[in-house]
C-alpha cells in the first residue's frame, strides 16, 4: 500500500474511532441520543479535520513536494519518546510516592482519567513541536 493510502486509512480509522467513542461515551452516561446529538458527534471530528487539510494544502503550495519528515525528524522523535518514557515512568512513580507520603491512600478513577488525558495531550503537543524542530 502506498504512503498516501496508509495516511487516508489512518485518518478514516481515527475518525471512525472518535465517532464510535462519542456514541459509547453517551451510552455509558445514559444520555438519550437524538438527531442533533448524533449529528454533532459525527460532524465535529469531520470539522476538526478541515484545518488539517487546509494546512496540508498550504504546505504543498508553499513548499512543493518537500516531505514533512525525514531521517533527522525520526531521530529527534526517537530521542523525544525516550525522554517521554523516562519522564512518565519515573514521574508517575515519584508522583505516587509523594501522594503516599502526603497520606493519600486511594485515587479516584475519574482523576486518573483526567491526569492521563493531560499526559496524552502534552505528549501529543510535544511530538508536534519535536517534529517541526
Amino acid at each position: 500500500m502506498k504512503k498516501k493510502q496508509w495516511e487516508r486509512l489512518m485518518i478514516a480509522i481515527v475518525l471512525l474511532c472518535t465517532i464510535i467513542g462519542g456514541f459509547i461515551g453517551l451510552t455509558i452516561a445514559d444520555v438519550t441520543i437524538d438527531f442533533s446529538l448524533a449529528a454533532a458527534i459525527i460532524c465535529a471530528p469531520l470539522l476538526g479535520l478541515l484545518p488539517r487539510f487546509f494546512l496540508a494544502a498550504r504546505h504543498k503550495k508553499k513548499m512543493g513536494n518537500i516531505p514533512e519528515a525525514d531521517e533527522r525528524t525520526a531521530l529527534i522523535l526517537k530521542r523525544y519518546f525516550l525522554g517521554v518514557l523516562y519522564v512518565v515512568l519515573f514521574g508517575s512513580g515519584a508522583a505516587l510516592l509523594v501522594l503516599y507520603a502526603m497520606g493519600v491512600e486511594s485515587i479516584e478513577t475519574g482523576l486518573l482519567i483526567v491526569s492521563m488525558m493531560v499526559l496524552y495531550v502534552s505528549i501529543a503537543i510535544g511530538t508536534l513541536i519535536a517534529a517541526k524542530l
Partner: peptide
C-alpha cells in the same frame, strides 16, 4: 534550501541543520 530539500527529499530544517 527549499530546492535542495525538494531534490534530496529531506526537510528544509535538515538542510539548515
Amino acid at each position: 534550501q527549499i530546492r535542495m530539500a525538494q531534490d534530496l527529499k529531506i526537510t528544509r530544517q535538515t538542510v539548515n541543520a
